[in-house]
Design a protein around this nucleic acid. Structure first.
Lengths: 326, 326
DNA sequence: CTGTTAGCGCCTTCAC
DNA sequence: GTGAAGGCGCTAACAG
C-alpha cells in the first residue's frame, strides 16, 4: 500500500504539518527534520502530486504541440524543449497534432483542467479563436492576430543569406522552390526576401511556389527545370524539399553542385551525431527551444515578456554547394 | 475565476452529484442532463483533473522513456506510441534519458507520485533495481532479469534474413559490422544469427563488433575493409551504421551496391513521407508501439498479460543492394 | 433518479 | 517551532 503523509507523521511521532514542512523545505527543528526524513525513507514515501496540485494549482508540466515528432526538425525541437524544461524541473507532454485543430484544442483545454501550466505550440491550423492572451502559450514560427508571444528564426535574413551565398558561388540564374499554406506564418519570408535580395544582387530569379499539400514535388520540379534550363542555383523552403529537388535534378542528368547548386532551410540532421543533409540555412533550434521555454515559464509566473523574439540563422556548407575560396 | 462543479450545480439548480454524473456519462434524466450541459457551457466549465485524480488515483497518463527523441527510430516510435495512447484517451510524457539512469529513475518515481499510470521504456542503462513486477512497465528491445513485460522485433529472424538476401544477390564474402554494450539486449541477436545463417549458407563471414560508444566508425570500417578486401556484402547493426559504412566504402573508391552491397537494420525513414535510407531489415515500429501500449494498459487495468512479444521483421529493398529478378 | 455528505492527501492558517 | 483542523474540487456511497 502506498504510504501517506499521515503514516509518515505517525511513524516519526510528529504532526502532518511538520512532515509537510520538511518536504517543502520550510525551516523545522533539526531533530524533527531528521526523524521525518528517516520515516520518509523507511516508508518509501512520495507525495501525491494530485493532492498537492489540488491545493497549489500548479502542475510543473507543459505541453508541446507539433505537427509530428516524426520529422527531424520537430524531433530536434522536442528534444531541446524537454531538455530546457527538465532543467527547470518541468515535465513535458508531447502532442502530435497532425495539423488537426481538434487535437490542438484538446491540449489547450488541458490548461483549464489544471493538467498543464502552459503550452508551446508549432501549429499551422486555425486555432486562433482559442488562443487568448490569458492562456500561457508560446507560438513557434507563427504569429497570431492577437498579441500572442512567439519565437521564430530570422527567415528574412535566411532568404537574403541564401541569395548571397548562391551569388558568391557563381550562380547567375537562381530559383526559389517551395510551398505555402493559407495560414500566415514566418516561413513566407524565406521566399519573399530571397527574391528581393536576388534582384538587388542582379540575379535572375524564377519561382515555383506550390500550394500545400504538394502531391508530387519531384515531377513538378522536373517540369519547372525543363522550362527554366538556365537555372544554376536553387533555394528551397526546407531541407526536405531540397532533397526532392536534388532527386529531380539527377533525373534530368544534371549534377549537384556542379551544374546546379542547392541551398535548403532548417539545418536538418537526422540525429545529434549526423551531418547536415544539404547546404542549408540553419535555424538555431536549441536556442529557439530554450527561449520558448524561458518565455513560457515567465508567463506562467506572471512576469511580463516581450511578445516577439527573432533568432539569427546562419549558412552551413554541405555538399550541395561549391566550395568557395575566400 | 475558474468555475467549479458547485457553480455549475447552482446555476443548473441541481446537486453536485448530478453534475458529476453528467460529466462521467452516468445515466440521468434527460431534463437535468440538458440543464447541466447548458450550465457547463455557459460557465465554460472544465473538471479539475487534480481533484478527480485525488479520488480515482488514475491519471490517464503514461510516460515514454527513450534515449533521445532526436533520432528517426525513436521519434517514429514516439509518434506511434502517442497515437495509440491518444486513441485510448491517454496523454504521453516524453522523457529523453540520454541513457542516464538518474533521469529514468525520476520518471519511474512518477508512478508512485501518481503522476503517471505506467511507463514504456527503451532503456539501456542499469535500472533493473527499480523495475519491479508491481510497476506497470513495458520494456522495448531489452529484457530484464525479472519477468518484466517486453516487446521486441524479431532480431533473430532479421539476422537470418539479411544473410539470405545477401546470398540471393550473389554475395560470397559477407561481414557484420556493429557495436555492442554491456547491457544484455535483443539487438545482439542480429549479429549472432546473421553469422550462424551465413555459415549455414556457406558464406564466409567476417565480423567487426566494436565496443560502444564508438568514436570513429568510418575509419574503423576503412581499416577493416582494407584487411578484408574480399568482402562483397555487409550487414550492419543499424541503418545509421550502414550510412557510415557506405561512406567508408566510397572513401576506398568502391561502389555501393555494385562492389559491396549493404543491408542495415531498423527501417529508418526521416519522416513518414520519405523513403528508406538504405536496404534494410524493417522493424514493425507501429505495431511495436501499439503492442506496447496495449500491454501497458492491460497491466494498468490489472489484466494478466504475456511477458514476451516478438514481432516479425521484413526486408525492404533500398538502393544499397542489387536488384534481384525472381 | 437525485441531493447530500464524507472523504481522497496535502498545504496552510491558527492557536498553542 | 509545532500539532490540530479546515478546505481545495471531485467522486461515490447513501438516503430519500
Amino acid at each position: 500500500m502506498k504510504a501517506t503523509m499521515k503514516d509518515v507523521a505517525k511513524l516519526a511521532g510528529v504532526g502532518v504539518g511538520s512532515v509537510s514542512r520538511v518536504i517543502n523545505n520550510v525551516p523545522v527543528k533539526e531533530s524533527t527534520a531528521s526523524k521525518v526524513k528517516a520515516a520518509i525513507k523507511e516508508l518509501n514515501y512520495e507525495p501525491d502530486i494530485y493532492a498537492r496540485g489540488l491545493k497549489t494549482n500548479k502542475t510543473q508540466t507543459v505541453a508541446l504541440i507539433l505537427p509530428t515528432v516524426w520529422h527531424p526538425f520537430f524531433s530536434e525541437f522536442a528534444y531541446y524543449v524537454e531538455e530546457a524544461l527538465e532543467e527547470k524541473n518541468y515535465k513535458m507532454y508531447l502532442c502530435n497534432s497532425d495539423g488537426k485543430s481538434a487535437k490542438e484544442y484538446e491540449y489547450i483545454q488541458m490548461v483549464k483542467q489544471n493538467k498543464v501550466d502552459g503550452i508551446i505550440g508549432i501549429t499551422y491550423s486555425d486555432i486562433d479563436q482559442y488562443i487568448s492572451t490569458t492562456l500561457p502559450f508560446v507560438s513557434i514560427d507563427r504569429y497570431f492576430t492577437e498579441d500572442v508571444i512567439y519565437v521564430t528564426a530570422d527567415n528574412i535574413a535566411g532568404g537574403k543569406i541564401a541569395a548571397n551565398e548562391l551569388k558568391k558561388r557563381g550562380a547567375k540564374n537562381v530559383a526559389f522552390i517551395g510551398g505555402h499554406q493559407e495560414i500566415p506564418n514566418e516561413t513566407k519570408n524565406r521566399r519573399k526576401h530571397f527574391q528581393l535580395e536576388a534582384e538587388r544582387l542582379g540575379l535572375n530569379c524564377a519561382v515555383l511556389d506550390l500550394n500545400e499539400p504538394i502531391s508530387d514535388l519531384i515531377s513538378e520540379v522536373e517540369k519547372f527545370l525543363i522550362a527554366h534550363p538556365e537555372i544554376d542555383g536553387i533555394f528551397t523552403i526546407t531541407d526536405l524539399a531540397a532533397v526532392d529537388v536534388i532527386k529531380a535534378i539527377k533525373k534530368l542528368e544534371k549534377r549537384v553542385p556542379e551544374d546546379i547548386q542547392v541551398i535548403g532551410f532548417d539545418g536538418l540532421k537526422m540525429t545529434l551525431a549526423t551531418e547536415y543533409l544539404v547546404s542549408t540555412i540553419v535555424q538555431p533550434v536549441e536556442e529557439m527551444a530554450k527561449t520558448a521555454v524561458a518565455l513560457l515559464l515567465d508567463v506562467i509566473q506572471g512576469k511580463g515578456t516581450p511578445s516577439r523574439t527573432v533568432l539569427p540563422v546562419f549558412f552551413a556548407e554541405g555538399n550541395t554547394t561549391k566550395n568557395v575560396i575566400l
